[in-house]
Computed example of a mutant assay.
Amino acid sequence: MKLAGECRCGAVTYHSPTTPQLAVYACHCQHCQAWSGGGFALHALLPEGAFTLTGPTVEYHYEQQGQHARHYLCATCHTRMYNTTSAAPRLWVLRAGTLHERSSLRPVAHIWVKHKQPWLVLPDDVPTWQESPTPETFAAALTGGCRA
């Protein structure tokens, strides 16, 4: 899948000169539910610098439970584009719903399922965790090396 996308209004776009493999996962935590306005949020982990972002952005940052996160949003429509977190150094967390080609996305893992909405049925063959897995376990699941 070509890595390209944009915010809701189109003021901020991104693209990558390469075609990175996307490790898409669904987060069901209460923060992601509130930020997405839905039952979960889809994220794709990418190496730092995996794409070039163009357009006006604003930054939102916070610290929670010893982790520091920086979120980058469109300055016009406030769509969250990606974030960084001290929990995953040297990785960018792309909001997968901003991709142009998103119809074939399938999460390879689900985290924070203790907050999953009861109407959502998860596939049996996809790793899930009640909260956040260890970085090593999560990395193995995202690359297809683990079935939790």
Score class of each variant (00 low, 15 high):
M1S: 12
M1I: 05
A4I: 07
G5R: 00
G5K: 02
E6T: 05
E6L: 03
C9I: 02
A11G: 01
V12P: 02
P17I: 10
T18W: 10
T18H: 14
T18V: 10
L22D: 14
A23L: 11
A23V: 08
A23F: 12
V24D: 11
A26N: 09
C27S: 01
H28M: 01
Q30K: 06
H31W: 02
H31Q: 06
C32K: 02
C32D: 03
W35F: 14
W35D: 14
F40T: 12
L42Y: 15
H43K: 05
H43P: 05
A44K: 12
A44P: 11
L45V: 03
P47R: 12
G49H: 10
G49R: 09
F51G: 07
F51N: 06
T52F: 11
L53S: 05
L53E: 07
T54H: 13
T57L: 01
Y60W: 11
E63F: 08
Q64E: 11
Q65R: 15
Q67V: 09
H68I: 10
A69Y: 12
A69N: 14
H71N: 13
C74K: 03
A75R: 06
T76F: 01
T76N: 13
C77L: 02
C77G: 03
T79S: 11
T79Y: 07
R80D: 04
Y82H: 11
T85G: 12
T85C: 07
T85L: 07
A88R: 12
W92Q: 14
L94R: 12
L94T: 06
G97S: 09
G97I: 03
T98N: 09
T98E: 10
T98Q: 09
L99Q: 10
H100K: 03
E101T: 07
E101A: 08
S103T: 14
S104D: 15
L105S: 11
R106Q: 15
P107I: 05
P107H: 06
V108L: 09
V108K: 07
A109S: 01
H110Q: 08
V113E: 15
H115L: 03
Q117M: 08
Q117K: 07
L120D: 09
L122K: 06
D124L: 00
V126N: 03
W129G: 04
Q130I: 03
E131W: 01
P133H: 01
P135A: 04
E136I: 00
T137S: 00
F138M: 11
F138H: 06
A139I: 06
A140I: 03
C146K: 11
C146V: 10
A148R: 05
